[in-house]
Design a protein around this nucleic acid. Structure first.
Lengths: 260, 260
DNA sequence: GGGCACCGTTCCGCGGTACGGAACGAGGTG
DNA sequence: CACCTCGTTCCGTACCGCGGAACGGTGCCC
């Protein structure tokens, strides 16, 4: 469902075997460390022998590893390594570090840097102070219900925004009415303030603000957000204090990036 | 060269297209953010049209992104996301955190957690105190010349050790005599002390110790190491103070992992 | 501005590769 | 011991990916 693996009308450029292999890697969520052949087949919709071959190939390349006793596969170190190669090239991360740390110090809450992947926001950097509430590096949070996701969607050009909203509708039809309303609000917030809110709808008692950061390098927008206990970050404070500081932070990051 | 992409005698299970696609992703090192079609072709040894198709596929899947004005490709957010999914499942990382922090506090040097990938060690977690010397998360260091790499190789079962040494010989024939000698020494160090040294041969004025950590989950050995300025970490101190503390750290991590 | 060199994409026919239904083998269970 | 489940292997065929060659675009130099 996520991407239409079926090649469009006459797409001879699309290499199906590669796409399928990556789809296999993708079915390892944070939840499931070990997957059986069968489970991968179910998730990807591919035939068992196909999975068997792809998994074999991925194992030989180090992207998966195999447990003899469990007869199950898990992600291997090559997969890690691949992601980190990508991470090392994110100079935003380096540039944003001191400012994120500073905001975290000021708010006593956690500050996150995230990028989008499918219907999740992938947290690639985190700062926190009191050990109150921690999303670690590597966590993924849903686009639909978090300030990070809303800021991302709000920042998207209309065409792409439509696409991702459609994907969300398809993924969770039951939640769509709520989702739709929340994103409409998020869009208004973004236009009015420059940032979006998440007030207890991802996790109760957690409030957050987030704002997008556009870079010159042609990547999708990155998002920086600040989240913490609801009693500590009431909506008023987010709107009048934390949000504006977040925008200032983004400005600082942009000029730090422009400098070098 | 790294892995023999050419299928062995009669390996009908190996999916070449998938392997090639991943090889394309692999050619993005920390150094090179943007690669042209041609450069990828050169590095992988594949024909231009092949690269073109693979890159197209990877771009559609979000693992690469394309700059219209540069006519170049860079790693995309899906690649990041993939790596982090793997990272999130490394509970070693969570378990080791407090102990690594502690060792870093004590030595005033940096402490690293790394996994192996091909001929590099991939640093997946870092702690440091004084801002003296920092290898960030995401860095890669060579197996050949670092304590991290030596500890990894020394910990390998003989058959695999032979393989990786052969790969290193093939990659840098000129350095082989030195490399060979150094690894022989590393092996002795490992047998005698349980850890290996890196004394200025990766970067001058940097000394380090590292030791492997075996886990029950069937993954290759992880490695934890401590590195810092040579004048601060003289060989004697590494051998008598830091090294033994490193071994204690490993013990703590193991029992922390066994607990839950 | 014309010519040239270079690079990336597209074309297209062939070769062989990846596909998946069916058979096989291995554990586990009643 | 028969039965079930799950993963791998077998194998013929369809068709997918391959790469040499042609094409179009861009920048450079004379």
């Amino acid at each position: 469902m996520p991407t239409d693996k079926r090649k469009s009308p006459e797409d001879r450029k699309f290499v199906v075997a590669l796409s399928r292999g990556l789809e296999v890697l993708r079915c390892f969520g944070p939840r499931d460390r070990w997957l059986t052949n069968q489970e991968m087949a179910r998730r990807t919709g591919l035939a068992k022998p196909t999975i068997s071959r792809l998994a074999y190939t991925l194992t030989r390349l180090g992207h998966l590893r195999y447990s003899e006793q469990l007869n199950k596969y898990a992600l291997g170190s090559a997969a890690i390594s691949l992601g980190f190669a990508a991470l090392g090239q994110m100079d935003v991360r380096r540039a944003a570090r001191p400012f994120m740390q500073e905001l975290s110090d000021y708010t006593k809450a956690s500050v996150h840097l995230a990028v989008n992947d499918q219907l999740s926001m992938q947290v690639v950097d985190t700062y926190w102070n009191s050990a109150s509430f921690v999303i670690d590096i590597g966590s993924r949070v849903p686009v639909a219900t978090t300030s990070l996701g809303r800021a991302f969607v709000a920042a998207l050009p209309p065409a792409e925004r439509k696409q991702i909203l459609a994907a969300m509708k398809a993924a969770r039809p039951a939640d769509w009415p709520t989702t739709r309303r929340r994103f409409a609000q998020a869009l208004r917030d973004y236009q009015q303030y420059g940032f979006c809110f998440g007030l207890g709808d991802w996790r109760r008692e957690i409030n957050a603000v987030a704002a997008p950061l556009f870079l010159a390098n042609g990547a999708g927008p990155h998002v920086i957000g600040c989240s913490g206990a609801a009693f500590q970050l009431e909506p008023g404070k987010l709107k009048r204090d934390v949000g504006p500081r977040l925008l200032a932070l983004l400005g600082n990051v942009r000029s730090a990036l422009a400098r070098d």
